[in-house]
Computed example of a mutant assay.
Amino acid sequence: MTTDENSPARSAGGGPHHAPLGVTGPESAVAAVQKQLSGDDWEVTAYDNSRALVRAVEERDAVGGLAFGDDGVTVYTATAGGQMISNAISGLGTALAGQQHVPATVHDVVPFPKDDPRGTGLAAAALPMIFGGMLPAIALLQFFPGHANLRTRLAGVVAFALAGGAAVTAVLQFGIGTLDGDYWVTSLGLGLGMAALAIPFLGLESLFGYAGFGVGSVVMMFLGNPLSGLTTGPYWLPDGWSTLGQLLPPGASGSLLRANAFYGGTGAGGPALVLGLWTLAGVALMFAADRRRNGRAGREAGDAPAL
């Protein structure tokens, strides 16, 4: 059974793409599901029992799972890992239970907090995360123009990122109730995401002028944002686009936020590494611009006539 190719879920390439799905139960039932879901939507893995399946969902080895038993089908979801993929798993489990004429019971293993059960605040965090990287860069370029202020801009953007991460996390966690993790860890992760946007922006402007800043902004707004998978989770995007989205700061920042806020840091290493590399790349661009300026100044000094 696969997702209907003409359904709204498939619009614009949306729908499960090689999503890791766990199954457990009698061998015959598991084999039948593996054969039925042999397309590109799901990557089915068999587990020894329901406890192992639940642990796989908690550890992010699976986006959800199906447990087949004499009393029906138990569907395990993780809405905090992606609302749409969880809905797809629920629908899949209900359909398979209907084929067997048994009931289906849904258990949300990793839910959103009760104050925001649909994760509305998480969807609303996308633009603050991006603008939290763009606006500080714009402000610092205006207040501290010229190559002589590169280090001042770098220090300023780090301070802005830390403050912005703390502020956005406070609103999402204490104001809206969307997040449910360690506040300081989550805020530092968001701050890293904002820095991974702002510092490359500053580096591009320092080396290529406002044209470089503009190109970077367009890429992040019109490519990084829609491919971030912040609201859907990465498995709801086509494979290649999903990979690209997770290699850009918005996608990596969203994945890091999800890992810290809902999974106790499980799976945070990859996106943190991506953000760290973007930050270092931005710093490298700024120092390349600084070296170019110093080299030009040295040549001009050497060409000046002696008095």
Rank of each mutant, 00 (worst) to 15 (best):
T3G: 12
R10M: 01
H18Q: 10
L21C: 00
E27G: 14
S28L: 11
V30K: 07
S38P: 06
G39W: 10
G39M: 06
D40A: 14
T45F: 01
D48C: 03
R51G: 04
R51L: 06
R51W: 09
A56Q: 08
A56D: 03
A62H: 00
A67R: 07
T77V: 11
G82D: 10
S86N: 03
G93A: 03
L96D: 00
L96R: 02
H101A: 06
V102N: 07
V106C: 04
D108N: 09
V110W: 01
P113Y: 05
P113W: 05
F131E: 11
M134T: 12
P136A: 08
L140I: 08
L140F: 11
T152Q: 13
G156W: 01
A159E: 04
F160G: 07
A163T: 14
G164H: 09
G165E: 02
A167Q: 14
V168S: 09
V168I: 15
Q173Y: 11
G175Q: 15
I176G: 05
V185N: 14
T186L: 03
T186P: 14
L188Y: 04
G193V: 07
A196T: 09
A196V: 06
A196I: 04
I199F: 02
P200V: 05
L204K: 02
G212V: 13
S217T: 15
V219N: 12
L223V: 15
S228P: 09
L230P: 01
Y235E: 07
G240W: 08
W241T: 00
W241M: 09
L248C: 10
P249N: 03
L256I: 09
L257E: 12
A259Q: 03
T266S: 15
A268W: 11
P271D: 12
L277E: 04
L277I: 14
T279W: 01
A289H: 12
D290S: 11
G295R: 12
D303G: 07
A304G: 11
P305H: 06
P305S: 01
L307C: 01
